[in-house]
Design a protein around this nucleic acid. Structure first.
Lengths: 173, 173
DNA sequence: AATAACTTTCATTTATTATTGAAAGTTCAG
DNA sequence: CTGAACTTTCAATAATAAATGAAAGTTATT
């Protein structure tokens, strides 16, 4: 009985990690990175690199690089245990915070550069025929649309970063 | 002078197509698919497969498969010119419509299956220690969070699909 | 029913991206 | 300063995903 329960938990955990990894792949996030994140999300304790390697059957280099990437994204943190040299890792577990961090990073890395290009190409001067007029019109629309969407992200971040509203957020929780 | 202007347009168009393609890659959409879409977005006329192949320097098979994929996503349509056998393609150019279609497809293909997994794994019965309790707690939170986000998409679609609100949308435009 | 004008399929090839692991780098205790 | 404990880097390799193109499939016309 106990044995069966144990298996069920391990199965569930594995299933979650694998699905989350697959989902990551479909969203342009490296599979291992998503899996490490998934593992840390459902693990109460912080994990060492060794433990991550063992749980996911990955190499030291892979673990190191993807943990670094997750920290660059600001969704995984290092912790230390007193008297130990080893580094331990924990995931951001607040989902609102997680969503904001991810949006923020994607905005910075992908949307902002795309906006720059859209601005550039849409500012083509003196369109000289129907084809060029349509190009300018369409890229301008796109620039405005993407800009508006991105602005929403900025506004949310701004709101969150404001101490007063943070207090407010805490109060209404 | 005219020559230089022409170059500038071609450059801008190429730049747009390449950037859009790169962006697609980062969001888990095949580069060519994003490029074809970009090309059709900024082209006023509908294009034949031959024309798409020539503009993007891609093979017939590649063009065929990605045009099909874009049609499956509902963001590119076939049109016919009278007296011609050939198929021509146009992109959905309304950006609200485009955003909705993309959200809808991603929800159907990725979020809904992820929800199914989350529901399954979070329903682990009789968690027997701190570790298992945390797993259930965390996956349940995730299930609710993702579910809520997905629901927003559904609501928007529902709203759009309603003929009355469509009329309303048109009236306020 | 034969042909011409197209489009789709899919086994093979090519390009891209992720992973490994051993060597180099870092940090700290003694 | 040295060495042990640990992490990072990166050239080589493996795994995955995308692209090709020729053959098969489809459809309209005569």
């Amino acid at each position: 009985m106990l044995y069966i329960c144990g298996m069920e938990f391990k199965e569930a955990k594995l299933k979650f990690i694998e699905s989350w990894g697959a989902l990551g792949g479909q969203w342009g996030i490296n599979k291992t990175m998503a899996q490490i994140h998934a593992l840390l999300m459902v693990t109460d304790e912080s994990l060492s690199m060794e433990e991550v390697m063992a749980e996911l059957n990955i190499s030291r280099g892979n673990a190191s690089m993807n943990l670094r990437a997750l920290m660059d994204w600001g969704i995984v943190y290092k912790t230390y245990k007193s008297g130990e040299r080893k580094e331990y890792f924990v995931a951001e577990k607040d989902l609102n915070e997680l969503a904001i961090k991810i949006s923020q990073e994607r905005s910075k890395r992908e949307i902002k550069p795309a906006l720059k290009v859209l601005k550039e190409v849409s500012s083509l001067k003196n369109p000289k025929n129907k084809e060029e007029v349509h190009f300018v019109k369409q890229t301008t629309k796109l620039y405005k649309f993407v800009g508006k969407a991105d602005n929403v992200i900025d506004k949310i971040i701004e709101y969150k970063d404001n101490w007063l509203s943070q207090l407010f957020t805490k109060l209404i929780k």
